[in-house]
Simulated scan of single mutants.
Amino acid sequence: MRMILSAVVAAALASAGAAAVPAPRVKAQSFEQLAKPLPLPYSQTAPAMAAVDKARARAKASGKLLLIDLGGNWCLDCRILAGTMELPEVEGWLKKHYELVSVDVGRFDKNLDVPARYGFKDRLAGVPALLVVDPKSDRLINTGKTTALSDARSMNPQGLADYLAQFAR
């Protein structure tokens, strides 16, 4: 199943013209190779909208995209994504292309003003939900693909990196 989903993601990227920015090459072949314990990336007390605004300002100043990671520490898929993003080859690549901010949405009952700002008026379809935002226009770039990683455990680390690369510039 993991290999099939990764192949589907790779095929979708190829048919979409693939990213102009190549994805980092990930050494880890499976999630079992991620550091343990998996990270708990979401602060339950951080002022979410202020954090998003600060990250957007940094992204705008640096010419990077804003990457908003919506999730909760209870979510295994969110923690797998965070563990993948902490791999040295992925972390360095992300810092080059994105300003990342993680937002705790609890059990879909906290900080929902953040996704609402980008057009999500109803409940999120799943987490992690990644919002790729153009910081100049504050416009969502990955419309329709925000919850593509909500079943991150069915992919491999390279598939997750490939997903992130399709929006990079």
Results as ranks from 00 to 15, higher is better:
33 Q>Y: 01
64 K>W: 06
58 R>V: 06
10 A>G: 08
63 G>L: 07
28 A>G: 03
51 A>H: 12
6 S>G: 07
64 K>L: 05
27 K>A: 14
13 L>E: 14
22 P>D: 03
29 Q>R: 15
5 L>H: 10
43 S>M: 04
45 T>Y: 06
41 P>L: 09
11 A>R: 01
7 A>I: 01
57 A>F: 06
62 S>T: 09
5 L>E: 09
36 K>A: 14
24 P>Y: 07
41 P>V: 10
21 V>Q: 12
49 M>Q: 15
26 V>E: 09
16 A>W: 05
42 Y>P: 03
33 Q>A: 15
40 L>C: 02
26 V>Y: 00
29 Q>V: 00
40 L>W: 04
7 A>K: 07
18 A>N: 09
11 A>C: 09
16 A>C: 09
29 Q>C: 00
40 L>V: 08
49 M>W: 07
1 M>D: 06
63 G>N: 07
27 K>Q: 13
3 M>L: 12
44 Q>I: 06
54 K>H: 10
32 E>D: 14
61 A>G: 09
33 Q>K: 12
16 A>Q: 13
1 M>A: 13
5 L>P: 00
26 V>S: 02
8 V>Q: 11
17 G>T: 10
34 L>G: 02
2 R>N: 11
45 T>I: 08
34 L>M: 00
40 L>Q: 14
2 R>E: 12
35 A>Y: 02
46 A>Y: 06
58 R>G: 01
55 A>Y: 01
18 A>H: 09
31 F>P: 00
22 P>C: 04
62 S>Y: 04
6 S>P: 04
47 P>R: 12
57 A>N: 02
57 A>Q: 14
61 A>D: 15
5 L>S: 10
63 G>H: 04
39 P>D: 12
21 V>A: 13
12 A>W: 04
50 A>M: 05
59 A>T: 11
33 Q>F: 02
42 Y>E: 04
58 R>Y: 06
54 K>C: 01
